[in-house]
Structures are given as C-alpha cells and as structure tokens.
Amino acid sequence: MELNETNIYKALEQVMDPEIPVLNVLDLGMITAVEVAGEAVHVKMIPTFAACPAVELIRRNIRTVLEETLQTVVTVEIDREAHWTSNRMTDSAKEKLKNFGIAPPQISNGEAYSEILLQTPCAHCGSKNTYLRSPFGSTLCRAIHYCRDCGQVFEHFKPLE
C-alpha cells in the first residue's frame, strides 16, 4: 500500500477504543497529527482523561495495526501540547455512541458541568425527563443517569472541557 496520509487515516479507522469498541481513535479525536518521514510513519495522539488506563494499550494497538497494514516502521508519540476535550468527538462518533446505548457528550461551552448535565437525553428512550445519579461510572469517561420515563439507568459519555 502506498505510504500517504489518506492511507494512514484509513488504517487508523481500524484501531478501536478498548473501552468503547464501536469508536475508533479518529472518532474520539485522539489523533493530532500523522506524518510520513521517508519510509517511516509518525503518529501523535492525546489521551482522553489524564489517568485513562487504556492509553498504553491504545498506543500499542495503533502501532501494531499500522505496521501490519502499511508494512513499515511506525512510531506513536503522546502529544504534550494538544488538549483533548469531548468537543473533539465527531458527529458520527456521537451517533455510534447513541446506537451503542451510551448518551453522547453535550457540547461543552464553558458552562458549569452541573448545568450541561441536566436533562441528558435518555440513551434508551430519548426522554429528557432524567437526572444525574452519579458523575462517576464504569469507566473514567462515563457518568450514570436515571430516566424517570422509562425507569432505567443509562450511561453517558461525560463532557470534558
């Protein structure tokens, strides 16, 4: 396969998040740069949460998948300058999250989280008659809400500024 940016991005589509397997690293906005340097490929990425335990695993997966697909040497570096916010997530990623049963993050616009978290649409029935049960869930990026209409608990990918 020819070494160019388009093919690198195509290959990155196959690298899924280990905690949310319907999203790839591009959906999540984790990739900040790709570069072809001679015969080698260089990728820069940013973690979602500072303490995300999956960062090293994702980094290894990017290297393995890209080396296999592109048949070349790949280095993956953590980008110290770029800042991850949930606004980096693409619209199609939010759609995939919803179909997976997790409410997508609202656009964070500098407002206090307590306000944007109000009436998060239920991931099961879409009702806005919901409340935040806990800002912490099964992974660092998720919160737990309760829907008064369908009577079910649902998870939410938290907005992060």
């Binding site: 949460f49 303490a51 335990p53 806990s134 912490f136 869930g137 099964s138």
Partner: peptide, 20 residues
C-alpha cells in the same frame, strides 16, 4: 454502589494526576 464507584474513580484520577 454509586459511591463505591465514585471513590474508586476519584482514586484512579488522583493517582493519575500524581503520576503526571
């Protein structure tokens, strides 16, 4: 249960922040 998860998550955050 929610509080168990909350303190465990905050533990994970704090230790990650210390590491950084």
């Amino acid at each position: 249960m929610e509080e168990d998860i909350a303190f465990s998550s905050m533990a994970q955050d704090k230790i990650g922040h210390a590491w950084a």
